[in-house]
Design a protein around this nucleic acid. Structure first.
Length: 847
DNA sequence: CGGATCGAC
DNA sequence: CTATGTCGATCCG
């Protein structure tokens, strides 16, 4: 039995410290010991106090969420269920299993490189980083609880023999480049994620490869390599699992020349080949995941690491099976906080995430719950988008306490200098400057200011940053600002188009003088810093009160006003132009490959968007529905079609299909928003129902509980007594006119509680609703979580289905982008709490 | 727009 | 002693 709800657990900051399961190696420590040691090293520190504070904030968020949950009524939940399930259908329709995405992940990358290059380190627990912070550790060290993102001094307490190797990025970059040279052969558009990870789309490679002669798939062992021991390393690790190279075409192996190996043509073989080549070239091992989308591929690569690979077959059921018991924390985008919040709702696995989809849609923001839904359905991006233009650039530094204004200003200038250098390398200018400060209690603040003309030089950036800094210093005066970190960021870059306009404008407006002085200014870094100098350089009026003036200077811009305004104008119009063209191309793109299959007539519909498809389905429903002859056409795996509705229908029972039709029918009325339903939708609804009364209504899916209640018991064949027929009519009618509530007053009647299934005699809906509420609060969550329908398919058993009544919210563009949202509760946070909180923070910031 | 937060590497 | 640096996304006020 699963305990659900109010577990605002007080596991404190320990949770944050990333302890992991320890496979009880011969050496190493068990979890308990690790926790204890970390706690001893940690407690009482400023860092720890701050962690506790953050933890409490999370707990407050959870509490708020739970309060919100308490207030959710049955009706709301059921309605949400309907809406979400409509979306589920759309998402299912758009499921795309035709791509083969690979995620490659180098094993303990930095540590592995260091071990490779220094044989002394082999067999020893090592970590890469510093006493302050570790970037990674080898597997040996991990047995002691030494992990990435852990400070070295704590790691040393866990594992006194730990060797800490300083970072050497140049080396890692070089190795990374070697690996990328291999990857690019399989997908020239592969997407690197940091130095040690990458996504590949090998769909095209797989096709080409089918026709490749064996020799193109033959690779040789590296025999020249002289390892540390002078020996010859024949990559023993890779071949430890001898299944690795023997499946696909064993006969081809025999023909291979000594010291060579031939790989097959399957996706698995391709990935083995990639890993083989990586290891031969770099002596490093990689893990890999193969799946129909990036999210799954990433989770797959985690499955058999280190030095393993795993595949999720491109079948809906395989995807669902893979997700079934997978802890949500394994999902990219779900971090500690989200994990904890969901855990408070009793959600730990992906299947539970699916089961609670209705609740989640009420408790979280749209972006969040939609993300959750994608996750629980196993949807992710099926193509690798090249990353767009950079949005910001920043630099920050941690140091031992700095508390004098002078030091802080000069540090700030230094950061601006570094940043300006980087900005100019990429030829970027931004309009927003953000200053970041972390005080000695680890509390972080950011302060931003946006100016009219974009900045890129040290002087320009510093002019803005110093004001922000000055304001912060003032705000604590007469106390010193005690900081341990400062950072400067520039954002709000001009887009490519805007740049062109700007260049034109600049060349036409600015004559040589100013421009050159801009370009040359930073080269002569002779200025021995000091902010006083800068304030001299700023416009007049700043020499009264340094600090007051500083605050007003926000919108100073070196060129004259008219230029600034002119630029602004141009930028706007050009941005508009860009947007328009983008729309057009987007449309064209989406035109290209989207073919929907109408779930009613089963004909392929090429359409721009869902709305159009829905319109078609509408027509089908009102026109040909009566025929009710649902021929299921033969459908071989046409890899072309991006949308695979048919195969699903095939694999599910007919009733499931009917379920979808019902829902679609009930949803298309976009006027049927939130709390009101138009009569036309109700008409259609009754039509469908009366058209298909003969169809045996089988238990369908969880969400039918929602429909049950929506349509009241009148549509539940088993529970409808004959004399309720009348009720049905009235009911529908009532809904037509007033449907602010799913339950309409009906005089004396016997209603069946959709939760506990018991009959409830009521004379008022209020009392019945109350009963359902109570029932629901007690049992629904639990009941839903206990459903065992996940493995088979998400949409299965439950009792007594009825047609749907769904609000016509537009859910266009099921594009399954790569975006992963952060998380927030959708409801507003109490202002009081927040402001008092921030006040506290401000007070505390300078103690 | 500004500030805070989350999450990934 | 000693708890990173950079970036993107999202949400709310």
């Amino acid at each position: 039995m699963k305990k659900v709800g109010n577990s605002s657990c007080n596991d404190g900051a320990l949770l944050r410290m990333g302890l992991n399961d320890n496979k009880a190696g011969m050496q190493g420590l068990d979890k308990e010991k690790i926790n204890k040691i970390i706690m001893e090293a940690t407690k009482g520190s400023r860092f720890y106090e701050n962690e506790l504070k953050k933890d409490q904030q999370v707990n407050q968020r959870i509490e708020k969420m739970m309060q919100l949950k308490e207030k959710i009524t049955t009706q709301q939940l059921l309605k949400a269920q309907l809406q979400v399930d409509k979306l589920v259908i759309e998402l299912e329709q758009s499921r795309n299993l035709s791509s083969t995405i690979v995620h490659i992940d180098m094993d303990a990358f930095y540590a592995a490189v260091e071990m490779r290059d220094n044989p002394e380190l082999k067999e020893k627990p090592i970590a890469v980083g510093s006493m302050s912070m570790l970037s990674t550790s080898n597997y040996h060290a991990r047995r002691f609880g030494v992990r990435a993102a852990m400070p070295g001094f704590i790691a040393k307490k866990l594992c006194p023999h730990l060797t800490i190797v300083p970072l050497n990025f140049e080396k890692y970059s070089k190795v990374s480049k070697e690996v990328r040279e291999i990857l690019t052969e399989y997908d020239p558009n592969f997407m690197p994620m940091g130095l040690d990870e990458a996504y590949l789309n090998i769909t095209e490679h797989l096709e080409k490869r089918l026709n490749w002669p064996e020799d193109k798939r033959r690779f040789f062992f590296n025999t020249e390599r002289t390892t540390e021991k002078g020996g010859y390393s024949s990559s023993p690790v890779l071949f430890e699992d001898n299944t690795l190279l023997m499946d696909d075409h064993p006969e081809q192996r025999d023909q291979s020349v000594a010291n060579s190996v031939v790989f097959g043509t399957s996706a698995e073989e391709v990935v083995k080949e990639i890993r083989f080549r990586i290891e031969q070239k770099t002596q490093l091992t990689a893990s890999a995941g193969i799946a129909p989308n990036t999210m799954l591929a990433k989770m797959c690569s985690d499955r058999n690491k280190p030095n393993g690979q795993c595949r999720v077959a491109p079948e809906r059921q395989a995807v669902l099976d893979f997700l079934k018991d997978l802890p949500i924390r394994k999902v990219p985008g779900i971090g500690k906080v989200t994990e904890k919040m969901l855990k408070a709702l009793g959600i730990v696995t992906c299947s539970e995430l699916y089961q609670q989809r209705a609740l989640l849609s009420l408790l979280f923001s749209e972006a969040s719950w939609r993300n959750f839904l994608d996750i629980s359905l196993g949807l992710g991006s099926t193509h690798l988008e090249k990353d767009g233009e950079r949005k910001s650039m920043s630099t920050e530094r941690t140091f031992s306490e700095i508390n004098t204004a002078e030091d802080q200003y000069s540090l700030c200038r230094e950061l601006c200098r570094d940043l300006a250098q980087e900005l100019q390398k990429e030829g970027l200018k931004g309009k927003t400057v953000t200053l970041k400060l972390k005080n000695v209690n680890f509390e972080v603040k950011t302060r931003a200011s946006t100016v009219l003309s974009s900045v890129s030089t040290e002087e320009e950036i510093f002019a803005v940053a110093k004001d922000l800094l000055g304001t912060e210093i003032d705000s604590v005066a007469p106390h010193p600002l005690r900081i341990r970190l400062m950072g400067v960021r520039v954002s709000g870059f001009l887009s490519e188009e805007e740049k062109k306009y700007q260049q034109k404008s600049i060349t036409s407006f600015l004559k040589s003088g100013k421009e050159i002085s801009f370009l040359r200014l930073h080269a002569g870094k002779s200025n021995p810093e000091c902010f006083t100098k800068n304030s001299e350089a700023s416009p007049r009026g700043s020499f009264f009160d340094k600090k007051r003036a500083a605050r007003q200077l926000n919108s100073e811009n070196p060129p004259n006003e008219t230029v600034g305004k002119q630029l602004f104008h141009d930028k706007k119009s050009s941005a508009h132009f860009v947007e328009e063209t983008k729309k057009v191309t987007d449309l064209q793109n989406s035109n290209m490959c989207k073919i929907f299959t109408c779930p009613v007539c089963f004909e392929e519909q090429s359409s721009n968007n869902l709305e159009e498809l829905n319109r078609h389905i509408d027509e089908c429903l009102s026109g040909s529905l009566v025929k009710d002859t649902m021929e299921i056409p033969k459908n071989d795996n046409s890899r072309e079609s991006t949308l695979n509705f048919l195969p699903q229908i095939k694999s599910e029972n007919v009733d499931e299909c009917q379920n979808k039709v019902d829902q679609l029918a009930g949803t298309d009325q976009s006027a049927c928003t939130s709390d009101s339903c138009t009569s036309s939708s109700t008409e259609k609804f009754t039509q469908i129902i009366s058209d298909k009364p003969h169809r045996e209504r089988q238990p369908s899916n969880l969400s039918d509980i929602a429909r049950n209640v929506c349509m009241k018991q009148c549509l539940l064949p088993k529970r409808i007594s004959e004399d309720n027929e009348d009720l049905f009519e009235k009911t529908v009618h009532t809904e037509e006119t007033s449907s602010s509530c799913f339950f309409e007053a009906k005089g004396d009647s016997v209603l069946v509680c959709p939760v506990c299934n018991s009959e409830q005699k009521t004379n008022s809906l209020v009392s019945f609703n109350k009963h359902v509420d109570v029932c629901l609060n007690k049992g629904l969550i639990q009941e839903l979580t206990e459903k065992k329908d996940f493995p088979k398919t998400y949409n299965t058993e439950n009792s007594n289905r009825v047609g749907g009544l769904i609000r016509g919210q537009q859910c266009t563009n099921p594009s399954q982008g790569t975006k992963r949202s952060g998380l927030t509760t959708s409801q507003s946070v109490s202002k009081k709490a927040k402001s008092s909180n921030s006040k506290n923070t401000i007070d505390m910031f300078f103690k």
